[in-house]
Simulated scan of single mutants.
Amino acid sequence: MSTEQIPSHRQQPGLLDAVAELEAVVAAGDDERFGPVLGLVGALFGPASPAERVAAGPRLAALLPDAPPFPRSHLAMMVGACVEHGADPVACAGPVLAGLRGALTGVELLLRRWAETGGGPLPDREEGDPAAAHERIADPARLDEWHAHLAVVGWWTLHLWQQASWAVYSHPEVRAGARASGVTEVLVELLGRYAGEQHDVKGLVHLALVLDDEPLLVLDRPTGTGYLLRMSGLSDTFQLHTLLADVLIGGGHLPGVPQDPEVVALARTAFLDGRRVIATGAFNLVAPDGSWIWNEGTPSDVPLLDGVRTLVLEPLPYGRSWAAGRFIQEVPGDLRLERVLDPAEAAERLARTVPGHAVDRAFRQDPAAAGPE
């Protein structure tokens, strides 16, 4: 018998063996063994094959709801790592985003009780003491021990849930499913309730709100023309503004100065190399009701009219410029023209919109009152 045929009784466990052991630990409710076995999963992740990482992702994600609260966030990070290495993001997303919601709910509880117990500096998750925070906020009449524990867990682990959620939200199919199911709406509302130095949530909000393969109807008031476009991967309205100018002015459909090719490339797929490249505004972006669409927002701010996001272009009331690029560098952006509306259709669509002059007058009277730009 060759040495290749001799079975080894001292084989090192593989990643999927460790995942199976973790599944058994969770099924048994053995919280004391959870941490060490999760550590074994992490140690075996590096040498694992791509196929093992792909297979491990959904299995680990399925354990999240029943994992102990504090180490659950580290398990979520492992799920995110599997997704980054090719695991099915849709199969992994549900438990990860549910965990993010739980952490955000915990943060909200901690913030409320912190204010009720005297306020002051919030706990430092690097140097602060979770036990001391728990003791301060727990109160049988206001917040029982278990919910106080979840509040502390949420505060100390939110950054880990953000990273795991980033991994799944980086995929268009997850964004589409989470938006359709209402998950993104709930998460963005919860994220919007908290903004602080210790948890920077702006990037995750922008990523969650990215639209993919989304129709966009654009009406140009000065020329009375209309255009149906389709956008994907646009993480901020500065980016949308740049690409609108490229497609419509650069494409010869509207008068104006075309965007610098480098500015356009940075809005689509190119990466910044440390230089500051300046983009300039070409239009005022206005909603059908006459309110302004600010560049600091996201294309999801463009409202739906008859089921299609509809944007009106008006002359710039004042010069605008900004640093070129994409708010989320990892996501490439695209905007393409599908058709030019015939004059009668464009006129009919424009007749149902309101000019943005009311806001324009407010700006001329008090520029600070008009908005953030």
Rank of each mutant, 00 (worst) to 15 (best):
S2P: 00
T3F: 13
E4G: 08
P13R: 06
L15Q: 11
L16W: 15
A20V: 12
L22M: 05
L22V: 12
V37A: 05
G39P: 00
G42V: 01
F45S: 15
A48Q: 08
P50E: 11
P50H: 12
R53W: 04
G57I: 13
A61K: 01
L63V: 12
L64G: 05
R72N: 11
L75S: 09
V83F: 11
E84T: 02
E84L: 14
P89D: 09
P95N: 06
A103Q: 15
R113L: 11
R113H: 03
G128N: 11
A131E: 15
R136H: 13
P140G: 15
P140N: 15
A141E: 15
E145T: 09
A151S: 04
V153N: 12
W155M: 13
L160A: 14
Q163A: 11
A164S: 15
A167M: 03
V168I: 09
E173P: 00
G177L: 13
G177K: 01
S181T: 04
V188F: 02
Y194G: 07
A195E: 13
H199K: 04
D200G: 13
V201F: 08
K202N: 13
L204R: 02
V205G: 01
L207W: 04
A208S: 07
L211K: 02
D212Y: 01
P222V: 12
G224N: 12
L228K: 07
S232I: 08
S232F: 02
L234F: 09
L234C: 06
S235K: 07
L243V: 04
L243H: 03
A245R: 00
V247I: 14
L248G: 09
G256F: 10
G256Y: 14
P261I: 04
E262W: 04
V264G: 13
F271G: 09
G274I: 11
R275W: 02
V277F: 10
F283V: 08
N284Y: 03
L285Q: 04
P288L: 07
N295R: 05
G297T: 03
V302D: 04
D306K: 02
R309T: 05
L313I: 02
G319L: 10
S321H: 06
G325Q: 03
G325V: 01
R326H: 09
I328R: 10
V331A: 14
E338G: 11
A344H: 09
T353A: 07
V354L: 08
V359L: 14
R361D: 10
P367H: 14
